[in-house]
Amino acid sequence: MDKRVVFAVAGSGKTTHLISKLSLDKRALIVTYTENNHRHLRNSIIKKFGAIPSNITLMTYFGFLHGFCFRPFMQNEMNTRGLNFRAPPQSKYPLTERKRYRDPGGRLYHNRLAKLIEVEGLLPAVRARIERFYDAVYVDEVQDFAGHDFNLLLEISAANAEMLFVGDFYQHTFDTSRDGTVNSTLHKDITKYEKRFSKAKIKVDKETLSKSWRCGTTVCDFITAHLQIKIHSHKDRVAEIIKVDTQELADRLHSDHSIVKLFQEQHYKYGCYSQNWGASKGQDHYENICIVMGQKAWKQYEEGKLREAVAQTRNKLYVAFSRARGEVYVVSDKLFKAYKS
């Protein structure tokens, strides 16, 4: 059974790679982390097969966690009624106390459910259930697994089925389901991160998806140089990175509806065709883009020190830059101030 994690770079064709693994005679479970990606994969499957074939199941991670790993075994016993996506209150219930995992209304804290499954001894049953129904498990956006969820993922990967995880370490922008300090430093160091997989007997593959189809050489070189994130291009196309230094150009960009403006946050306040850096993850339809930087980032950019930005900012910038198929305009938010509401 092949078990591997493929570290992909932005625009390298993760979805295409996953979809190419699917066939009508292999029972496959695909788990995505975000709803956005779920929809994207669903449409890609429909494009390939015309419909969703009965041997292929697509679930979001929380759908999988609750509907596949917990509900079939424990719902009646614990009298639960779905997930609670709020942070659990500060209370000192021990790990074995069910109140730690279940709110008074019967909902399970989303960030602790993976731990509950371990504590209740359900891991063997979950692995058996995977083996009972699937020949292969594909997990997309693996970089988004954090906290207990990451541990659960490694545990279930021992099931006797093909396992393929794909993700882009640097596209990890925030932990949605952290619980205390569990795996809180997981994304600090890529070498240590890789080790977690190899220790769980999962082969780390950094070759297969190391080149971007989307970004041209210039953009890849820029990302490698400025953010110190290695990314290569399939295309030998040279596209410009344009530093915007006049208000006039900024105004033109603002009113150009073919160029998306990517902001660090609160993009909707600028009254133009826009998105936030982090939220642009997964978007594949932009041509030229315009990245608007706050003063701190702008200063680091001008000094060639963007790599020193905090990891979260750096990762978000990586996501943003790697959206570009064509040209990238870089602009200081000073020149957009007039538009802010």
Binding site: F73, Q75, R132
Partner: peptide, 16 residues
């Protein structure tokens, strides 16, 4: 059968 959505122990007997 092959559909995971019907398979589980959520019944009176607790059988999987």
């Amino acid at each position: 059968g092959d559909e995971q959505g019907y398979y589980g122990t959520q019944n009176l007997t607790g059988a999987m």
